[in-house]
Amino acid sequence: MLSIKELRVSIEQKSILNGLNLEIGSGEVHAIMGPNGSGKSTLSQVLAGREDYLVSGGEVLFDGLDLLALETEERAHAGLFLGMQYPVELPGVNNMTFIRESLNALRRARGEPELDAADFLRRVREQAQLVGLDQALLKRGVNEGFSGGEKKRNEILQMAMLQPKLAILDETDSGLDIDALRVIAGGVNGLRAADRSIIVITHYQRLLDYIEPDRVHVLVGGRIVRSGDKQLALELEQRGYGWLDEAAA
């Protein structure tokens, strides 16, 4: 599904990713953990096509496509979805209209007809209920005046509507209380499928109690320094990241 080889990325001449390698198979859930500043968010933004970063080396294949050669929207058309760590507010842009336009853009790109308005309405309401997003927020501006938790639920709602092949969730758990965390984890687990892969970026083992990963990777200094199964996350919880620095050095 996703194959990252020797990826090197910098921003404003500061090197962030230094030869990152990662392989994710179809249907797998991978967790990426790591200390602040290790490059986790940079990785997710670069994969989604944020233009502020300079890719100086390496390659990324997504379903056989040269991902880095695609425009941001083309990556979405190909089935990539990034759940943002800090979803921006789009004042005056109606949330429901936004989700509908986005879904229809993907359908057009795939040569499918646009979704019938009634069908769309039924589905978006259904999904909003599943992720615990107040229906009233569908009629507001996108994320406009939403609480932190509501913004994250809105991300999961978009993911559920867009049905991506690869979802990257960038610290979706940050700032959530335990109930919200459960709902969001439920939303993610509901999407697990043989033809869909998920990358969960998190600081905390806690989320992984609810979303059980197939693999756990530790990102330090812009490289994956260790990979393992879910036991690795528990070990990190107990020992922190310091021992890995030593191991890496």
Partner: peptide
């Protein structure tokens, strides 16, 4: 970026 990342 947010809009484009959603395929728009």
């Amino acid at each position: 970026f947010y809009l484009r990342s959603r395929g728009i």
